[in-house]
Design a binder for these strands. Structure first.
Lengths: 204, 204
DNA sequence: GATTTACGATACTGGTCGGTTCAGTATCGT
DNA sequence: ACGATACTGAACCGACCAGTATCGTAAATC
């Protein structure tokens, strides 16, 4: 989607020294960061390209030389912002869940996507490309959790008469609910409470 | 907030017959309904007053004679759309929860607010008035559930070592998560699964 | 009938924003 | 030095939109 030939994942050994003035290094970075910052603050619709340009310390023309449209820019900025949570396997379900949910709580508080989420959800309602991006984000969050629970089932620690998907919903749902609706704090205390509540339920 | 003197809750015995042509009856209704319909489809930012006027079969001037601004109109439309879920008290926690969550599932599928929710959440991020409206909505959803669980605690059916608020989050969270993020179906099956999963947890 | 108020239709104002274009300048290879 | 490419700054276009103004008309009271 990016107009640049410098690869799709940031730093790439881009040999073949072309003629003419090279592109300002770090401009892509600055623009993408500014894009996400502005999106965080005012959402995608309220976000003006002039503001992004100013924030990135770059001319608006420069942006349009590197991305075809506002939408293309937003899509790449989002793609870059999705950092998968990794799955620890500490031996016990409780330990795995504690670390996973702890990371999730931290991301909810300080993560890249946290403040963009409301805007992303809204836009994705009628934009298939954004919707796909959101699905990707959701999948990245669910995958490790499914793995944790799956291991628990295989070890006989977890009952196998309930859909794994429903269990995942029971763990992640409360976080999303607090983040988007109630605004209640999401900290270590909440994680502990939730585990105290849910662990007895899922154990075989 | 409404410019009209006809009261704040729709039909009011509006005596004191004023002179001149009376306001077209049902126009308020039509306008508020159209507002919510359009909001459902394109969100609050994408919603043009001309479209609302046309949809309501009304001139734009008529709208501005009754409401001071787009924001005032939206606020009243939202206020009207919040219908509280009622709390049954069927004697057992399981029965109460079944009916409550069943109603919740139905609202998520066909309710007034369901499709507006993403837009409302987005706007409320930086608009205190919208935020207040959203808080009101959330409170209306939580209240009956808290009552159900509270009764369960008093009857000794439910353990009292976990915050009630956390329990509520555990029940409502999965619904919100599915509605806003995963898009997974929210039907009777999901309600049953969730109850099978959570009931053992909360019982004393 | 005169007055008063609400109405539809439509045009208009003022502002915002995505995207384009261009002149002048900077920085690279050759 | 020269051509090629990138960058800034700014002007500019076209679309969209909230809100206002106007005008002729409909429906009520007096």
């Amino acid at each position: 989607m990016a107009a640049t030939a410098s690869g799709q994942n940031g730093v790439v050994t881009d040999d073949a020294p072309r003629r003419g003035r090279p592109r300002t290094v770090g401009a892509d970075e600055a623009i993408l960061t500014a894009t996400l910052d502005v999106a965080r603050e005012v959402g995608f619709r309220g976000m003006a390209m002039d503001v992004i340009a100013e924030r990135a310390g770059v001319s608006k023309a420069t942006i349009y030389r590197r991305w075809a449209s506002k939408e293309a820019l937003v899509l790449e900025a989002l793609r870059r912002a999705i950092n998968p949570l990794d799955d620890a396997d500490l031996g016990s379900v409780r330990a795995d869940l504690t670390t996973y949910l702890g990371n999730l709580a931290e991301r909810m508080a300080t993560g890249n996507m946290a403040d963009v989420l409301p805007h992303l959800i809204e836009w994705s309602v009628h934009d298939p490309q954004l919707r796909a991006q959101l699905d990707d984000y959701v999948a990245h969050r669910r995958r490790p959790l499914v793995a944790i629970l799956q291991r628990g089932v295989e070890r006989g620690e977890i009952r196998d008469d309930v859909e794994l998907d429903t269990m995942v919903d029971a763990f992640v749902g409360p976080f999303i609910y607090r983040k988007l609706l109630t605004g209640a704090p999401i900290g270590a205390g909440f994680v502990d409470d939730l585990l105290d509540l849910l662990i007895p339920t899922i154990t075989a």
